[in-house]
């Protein structure tokens, strides 16, 4: 999967959830990805370059890493 596009998507989700405050936004972004992204999308963002992720999105991806059941590609 195109990691640049997934990064864009993750940032967009985070920006729309940001108004809820940082902690809540990180949790909500991570949860959104768990609920709506297909496994290869999750795997690709975990394995990909995270430098373009904005802070909330990056923290959400880091949180995902700790969730069982999602292995990097």
């Amino acid at each position: 999967m195109d990691v640049a596009r997934l990064t864009y998507m993750a940032n967009q989700i985070a920006r729309n959830l940001a108004a809820g405050g940082e902690d809540a936004a990180i949790a909500a972004t991570a949860q959104h990805i768990v609920k709506y992204w297909e496994p290869r999308m999750k795997a690709a963002i975990l394995a990909g370059d995270r430098s373009a992720l904005e802070p909330i999105a990056r923290a959400a991806v880091e949180r995902l890493e700790r969730v069982a059941g999602i292995e990097p590609a």
Partner: peptide
Amino acid sequence: PEPGLRIPNMLDAALDGS
């Protein structure tokens, strides 16, 4: 038990052969 691909994701995944 895992969610699947949406239409735009299907097209992206097609481009990388999966």
